[in-house]
């Protein structure tokens, strides 16, 4: 690892983290806004903990993200393997195009059409409809993340497994899936990103008091976003970062013990 690439990595990481540190910095501001820093306070953190409605929203947001990403990863993984196994050229490119429709469609269209869809099917708006909608728009991104890994793996392995008499089930579970692990992981992470960021789709398909952080933040925009939101984001950010570090140390030890997974 030479200095050039090391400094490149550092610069990019600073670029990516700078806005977040900026938000975190102002979460301690007595001034009440993100303009001038007047003094240090922990008030916003205190009021987040005391604010039951806000805590509910945070828990909802995390729940929706995890559940929808989990389901989207399974569906997307199956979809990607299915697309990979199709041999007819036109069928494959048609399906792949359909796959990407939701990626190109602006959120307003997705939100409005899902609202109509849920109304037709009589699905009550609330946590279920929001999770369904998030699964819907996360599946294509999972597929796009997994497909390159599939194409890249050595297809001879699959053929060899077949020749050795492995059942189709075994080929998929013992050969294919372990080979594309990074793709699956990437798909899951991107599904999380899509879910946590979404505002417009959630807005249209939510109801019965169910709300996520993004919806709350956008609704606040007219009156100015309170620093409580900065405080929440800082907490979420720190927690996620801590979990990643723990993961890093745990996997590091595993490697040292020679137990690579």
């Amino acid at each position: 690892m030479n200095t050039l690439s090391r400094s490149f990595l550092t610069v990019i990481i600073i670029f990516l983290y700078f806005p977040i540190l900026y938000l975190a910095y102002y979460s301690f501001n007595t001034g009440g806004s993100m303009t001038s820093f007047e003094g240090f306070t922990l008030d916003y953190y205190k009021s987040v903990i005391e604010n039951k409605a806000l805590m509910t929203v945070i828990m909802n947001t995390i729940a929706v993200a995890l559940i929808s990403s989990g389901f989207a990863t399974i569906i997307g993984l199956f979809g990607a393997i299915f697309l990979y196994l199709i041999r007819q050229k036109y069928v494959k490119s048609t399906l792949l195009t359909l796959n990407n429709v939701l990626i190109v469609s602006p959120d307003v269209i997705i939100g409005a059409s899902l609202l109509i869809l849920f109304s037709i099917f009589g699905i009550k708006l609330g946590s279920t409809s929001v999770i369904l909608a998030h699964i819907a728009f996360s599946v294509p991104i999972v597929v796009l993340m997994i497909l390159p890994s599939l194409y890249q793996q050595n297809s001879n392995l699959v053929l060899a497994a077949h020749d050795l008499g492995a059942s189709a089930f075994h080929v998929v579970t013992k050969v294919l899936i372990p080979n594309i692990k990074p793709g699956i992981f990437a798909g899951f992470l991107m599904a999380l990103t899509y879910s946590l960021d979404d505002f417009a789709v959630t807005f249209f398909v939510t109801g019965n008091g169910f709300s996520t952080l993004s919806v709350e933040i956008y609704a606040m925009a007219r009156r100015g976003i309170t620093l409580e939101i900065n405080a929440i984001s800082t907490v979420i950010f720190v927690v996620v970062l801590t979990i990643s570090f723990i993961y890093y140390f745990v996997s590091d030890k595993k490697i040292k013990r020679g137990k690579t997974t």
């Binding site: 909802n60 729940a63 559940i67 990863t73 946590s127 699956i184």
Partner: peptide, 13 residues
């Protein structure tokens, strides 16, 4: 991966 995300998500809900 899948089981833990569904489980934790379910718990939060």
């Amino acid at each position: 991966l899948i089981a833990s995300s569904l489980l934790v998500g379910g718990l939060f809900l």
